[in-house]
Design a protein around this nucleic acid. Structure first.
Lengths: 266, 266
DNA sequence: TTGACAAAGATTGTTAACAATCGTGAACTG
DNA sequence: CAGTTCACGATTGTTAACAATCTTTGTCAA
């Protein structure tokens, strides 16, 4: 049955969307005021966000391999919506760089090359260190329960050896670091970078260490909680280096072109 | 004739799109390889990018005031395209946060509130200092002509006292700082933040200093060229502080609701 | 005069049919 | 047998009509 990591049948797991980012606390100037981040309905009436979230999650869990074709018809029946919704969702996903739209040829899951991979890590190296530094500095004022709970989830997933869950949570820890700042923009940036990282790890990662090394997340969080900016920053930098050095930039995994659709058709 | 800064008749200036970001040089790991940033046609066949660029530019020049309604019909005739193109463009713009889509009510130019303004500056304070620092460190390897030319453009615009040009160039300097890294992701992030800043300055800025203080850009660039990371970072931080302190967060400019459409109709 | 209510107009959301393009495979030719 | 061409099927792009919703305007009554 080919236990490959790719799934052609768009195995989008159900529900569990609605992962709002909490308001309050604006990092530098922590003015206690309602931020318009976690509002009830950012794009009211647009239920294509549902589709976007599902595909996003599938990519994060490396269940949707790069270069997999996402045909409109398939998505329509998968999600039970009209073609318009699907097309809008695809447009949004392409604007996030998660997929690539080719004229008259359809949508394909993004397939970062070596150069793009370098850009992603360079961007993360630029943003994340100052981020955790500031987080550690102001950790007295902000709410870290999200992160604490997250570590628990990671441990649980590791315990139960749930591969996809481990992969996704491992990436989402970094997203939640950004989320903890309460800054909508920082959150969005990190989310995009983390998603790309997931694609990259899937492509260039040596089969085993698809997730972040075991307890480094926990150590980083601990440094933040201890209000130790230097340590937090240092740990994070070496953490990112670990991830990057675990990649083999030369021999990329087979891009699996449209093979996925062949396997997944029926 | 009401010389207000808002224009209701969608005065999108013609042409001058196609502002590609140059490839090469990936900031941290400067591997001399083709980056897929400045390719010929990122979204092939999609000419809604044209509309997006025009509206983006209008916002950058503060010719499109926050809360201005962008009705589909008006945009259709303005750009001479079908409704589909307009709707796609609006969706993209909303995903960038430039406009806000309200269900069954239409698209409105985004109108950041105080909290969001704080988030924007917090995010910039997080990203830009490390950015110019790295730029200064690796200024030997990268091409700074874009920035040098830009300063010249700014001076020329100031000379001729072209208000909209000054405003746009003033913001775009920061975008081009990011562009100089050659990193697609950093560029995108900064572009979004700078655009938002333009909206914020338009809303909260005291009428006069809508642009960045005179020659600070030049000084920053000079510090980068001199490979002086500390100075560059310091100058940029105080530059951002100047911009932010020039705002009056309490009394925002009249949001000008749909008043714009009234004045601008015909 | 002010308020609520209702109908008309305008605007956006949705659908389905049509057009254009691309990929595939069969047939044909050298 | 190899290579090319053509036609068919499948997929995406576009358009236009229709449905749903909101806004406005006019009327009526308190």
């Amino acid at each position: 049955m080919l236990g490959l990591r790719l799934i052609g049948d768009y195995a989008f797991t159900a529900s569990e969307s609605a992962k709002e980012i909490n308001p309050e606390s604006s990092l530098v100037s922590s003015i206690p005021q309602q931020s318009s981040v976690g509002k009830t309905d950012p794009n009211p009436g647009s239920n294509e966000n549902f589709i976007v979230e599902r595909i996003y999650k599938a990519v994060m869990e490396q269940r949707l391999a790069p270069n997999t074709k996402l045909s409109e018809a398939r998505l329509c029946e998968t999600f039970g919506v009209g073609r318009m919704r699907v097309r809008r969702a695809l447009l949004l996903l392409s604007s996030q760089g998660l997929i690539e739209l080719q004229s008259n040829r359809g949508a394909y899951v993004a397939c970062p090359d070596k150069s793009e991979a370098n850009d992603v890590f360079a961007a993360r190296m630029l943003i994340e260190p100052p981020l955790v530094r500031q987080l550690a500095q102001s950790s007295g004022d902000i709410d870290l329960t999200v992160l604490i709970d997250h570590i628990a989830l990671e441990d649980a997933a590791r315990e139960k050896d749930e591969r996809t869950e481990i992969i996704r949570l491992s990436g989402e820890f970094h997203t939640k670091l950004a989320q903890a700042t309460g800054n909508k923009f920082i959150f969005r940036m990190m989310r995009e970078l983390v998603t790309r990282t997931s694609l990259i790890v899937g492509l260039f990662g040596s089969s085993q260490n698809a997730s972040c090394p075991d307890d480094e997340h926990s150590k980083i969080l601990h440094a933040i909680q201890s209000q130790n900016p230097e340590l937090a920053e240092k740990l994070l930098i070496s953490h990112l280096n670990h991830i990057q050095s675990g990649l083999d930039m030369e021999s990329r995994q087979q891009p699996q072109d449209d093979l996925a659709t062949i396997l997944g058709s029926d």
